[in-house]
Design a protein around this nucleic acid. Structure first.
Length: 220
DNA sequence: AACCAGGACGTGA
DNA sequence: TCACGTCATGGT
């Protein structure tokens, strides 16, 4: 298992190169090789908004929604919180679930303001409506640079196919396996970079080689 | 024309 | 805990 997790990471990196996630719209999208992002609280906030909006939805739709919010000058915590409900729903409509997501976004904006630029704990995030384990870890890893490996549906598919996890295995159980392998190999901020890249590579690979639930090609 | 996309949550068993 | 149903738009 240890070998497979590390080898797959290096294989994907070799095939696709650095992905430079999280894609930030207001700073010209991708920034491969530059791990300085996010540089400002507003950029961190934009990432968090993206993690909520992309739930069970295509990223292209999220880009449209974030662009809409930016046009309304509502991409900051305070301005998003102040935005009326109906224009907010209209702005994020392309991502679907706009009734719940509008509530989730403003709940989070309120929480983000109260943080005063401190780093939230995983439990604090999980206590918020609309933030489950994957979304919490996405925020922690990409917006707050904390070493939490993200387990999404692609991760389950790829690594269940490789025989080291079960499709309906508990989130924490799968995450532990990755943490156990990666932590001894990498340390400190390096581990954050690797977790960021690994998840991005998994998504990139899955986007290109999955059709529905069927795997068309495995890494090598 | 069904199927699914970088999920979360509520419900009844 | 487990298995389903619901939320909703947009692309293939």
């Amino acid at each position: 298992m240890c070998f497979i997790i590390l080898k797959t990471y290096h294989d994907l990196l070799k095939i696709y190169g650095k992905q430079g996630w999280w894609p930030l719209t207001e700073s010209n999208g991708y920034h491969p090789g530059n791990y300085g992002f996010p540089k400002t609280p507003n950029q961190s906030f934009e990432i968090c908004i993206g993690t909520i909006l992309t739930q069970n939805t295509n990223w292209k739709s999220v880009e449209v929604a974030i662009s809409n919010l930016n046009r309304l000058q509502s991409l900051t915590p305070a301005s998003l919180l102040a935005l009326e409900t109906s224009p907010l729903k209209e702005a994020i409509r392309p991502t679907g679930y706009f009734n719940q997501k509008s509530l989730y976004l403003q709940t989070f904006a309120d929480f983000f303001l109260a943080l005063k630029e401190q780093i939230p704990s995983r439990d604090e995030l999980l206590a918020l409506r609309g933030i489950g384990e994957e979304t919490a870890d996405s925020m922690l890893l990409y917006a707050f640079k904390q070493p939490f490996f993200i387990v999404d549906s692609y991760t389950r598919r790829i690594f269940s196919d490789l025989g080291i996890v079960e499709m309906k295995e508990r989130y924490n159980s799968i995450q532990k396996k990755f943490h156990a392998v990666m932590e001894p190999e990498f340390s400190g901020f390096k581990r954050v970079q690797v977790y960021q890249e690994y998840h991005a590579l998994i998504v990139q690979h899955a986007k290109l080689h999955f059709s529905g639930k069927r795997l068309k090609l495995l890494p090598r």
